[in-house]
């Protein structure tokens, strides 16, 4: 085992000193520290189940070495929650039945959040492009696209009300 290095990460708003060997991926680190909402799927960048935000941009945590992330801010799907209230994306996924077995859901929501960070008013084609790295074997995607459009609308309304 190579020497363990310490990396400072901000995870869901909380600063943590993470000790990890150089070959540890962010996926392994997060699950080892109890962030079980981050799912392990293909572990090669095909399925998107492990997606998290790094400084607001979705990445596959299975392809990201923890040691490359010094000082970066990580957001998991649990970090989107607003106190006791669901984030509009989370609420829309529930409302539209965009969740069936649920395994792909954390990754889909993070990929969608990454899109909405840049593109508050996405076209259906924008959504398709943004979610092309997330595999879902239950829903057939249509309900997912509906939920993302609904959440985008809610977030725009919040923005214009603030």
């Amino acid at each position: 085992m190579r020497e363990t290095e310490t990396t400072t990460l901000e995870i869901n708003g909380r600063t943590r000193e993470i000790a990890a060997p150089p070959n540890q991926t962010l996926l392994e680190t997060l699950r080892e520290h109890g962030y079980f909402e981050v799912k392990s799927g293909c572990e090669k960048g095909d399925c998107g189940a492990c997606a998290v935000l790094v400084d607001g941009e979705a990445v596959d945590s299975c392809l990201t070495l923890t040691g490359t992330l010094e000082g970066r801010a990580i957001t998991t799907v649990a970090g989107l929650k607003r106190g006791e209230e669901l984030h509009p994306l989370q609420a829309a996924f529930v409302k539209f039945g965009s969740i069936q077995c649920g395994y792909c859901t954390p990754g889909l929501i993070m990929a969608a959040q990454s899109l909405l960070n840049e593109t508050p008013e996405p076209s259906d084609e924008d959504i398709r492009l943004a979610l092309s790295g997330n595999l879902c074997r239950c829903t057939g995607y249509t309900k997912v696209f509906d939920a993302v459009q609904e959440a985008a609308r809610v977030l725009r309304e919040e923005e214009s009300a603030s």
């Binding site: 998107g48 941009e57 979705a58 596959d60 392809l63 990929a111 492009l129 979610l131 790295g133």
Partner: peptide, 12 residues
């Protein structure tokens, strides 16, 4: 770039 892998891979 549009048809390259998926968003998370394109971001990295």
């Amino acid at each position: 770039a549009r048809v390259f892998a998926g968003q998370m891979v394109r971001n990295t």
